[in-house]
């Protein structure tokens, strides 16, 4: 682990409701400095719901979220982003009728990030050279893989202290997934802590050091990715067999 003694993010017994029903009952996990952590679980397990609640985009019905040492339950996504929690959403959620460059510029949300826009842009374009080529193109006209790269790059523009990636491989062809993960590897090695939500368990386990398994709105298992890789629980969470 790193020199700091406290986790960057700790989530304790998180509960989230959608109007009528509870999608997340009991989710707990932690991210320590420099760590890459994955949240695994089949579709509908509550991964996206948890991340959005942590970000403040959904109301929290119970439990505690601590980010950088402060209790942040009830804060807005704007406030969380200002503190350096950057979410790269499932489905990318770009601004399709803005250019690639404009999308990137908007990623620099804090004053600090905006002051460093130029440097961040260079970094992003070095990570994803295709974005530099396409910078004047409308984001909506990019291919799926390029859009995902743009979404990640847009997140990096905000100088994340914690980067939350929600299914970055969703709907991408295997070759493109490789490319995206190569870039994610570099991000992790640069020391940016990440939370990765994935369906493609294999890649996630290779990238991250630790992971949690969610099932039916609960964390049902945690451990190092090496432990998880051999776990029956993981298989049953995905395949529904015991």
């Amino acid at each position: 682990m790193s020199t700091t003694l406290s986790p960057i993010l700790s989530v304790e017994r998180l509960r989230v409701k959608y109007d009528l029903f509870e999608a997340v009952f009991d989710v707990s996990f932690e991210v320590w400095p420099g760590e890459a952590v994955c949240l695994l679980g089949s579709n509908g397990a509550g991964k996206t719901t948890s991340l959005r609640a942590i970000l403040g985009a959904l109301p929290i019905a119970g439990g505690r979220v601590c980010f950088l040492g402060d209790d942040t339950s009830g804060k807005s996504p704007g406030a969380m982003t200002m503190r350096g929690m950057i979410y790269v959403p499932e489905g990318r959620e770009l601004f399709p009728s803005l250019t690639v460059l404009e999308n990137l510029e908007l990623g620099a949300i804090t004053r600090e990030a905006r002051a460093r826009t130029r440097a961040s842009l260079e970094l992003a374009c070095e990570l994803f050279p295709i974005l530099a080529e396409r910078r004047m193109q409308l984001a909506g006209t990019l291919s799926g893989g390029q859009q995902q790269m743009l979404a990640i790059a847009r997140g990096l523009m905000g100088l994340p202290r914690l980067l939350m990636l929600d299914e970055p491989s969703l709907g991408l062809a295997p070759v493109v997934v490789e490319q995206v993960y190569a870039a994610l590897g570099r991000i992790v090695r640069s020391g940016t802590p990440i939370i990765l939500v994935e369906q493609h368990v294999h890649q996630a386990l290779e990238l991250c050091q630790r992971g949690y398994v969610l099932e039916g709105g609960r964390t049902v298992q945690q451990g190092s990715t090496a432990e998880l890789a051999g776990s029956d629980r993981l298989r049953s969470a995905y395949l529904g067999v015991n």
Binding site: R52, L55, A57, S76, P77, G78, M80, T81, M82, I86, Y87, P89, E93, L94, F95, P96, S97, L98, E102, N103, E105, L106, G107, I109, R114, R154, G155, G158
Partner: peptide
Amino acid sequence: TWLGKAIRASADNRRGATLMGLD
């Protein structure tokens, strides 16, 4: 301007704008 782009962005994709921290 950044503010102007942010306004266009939230017109373009309101949910996306919220999730990336635009107010």
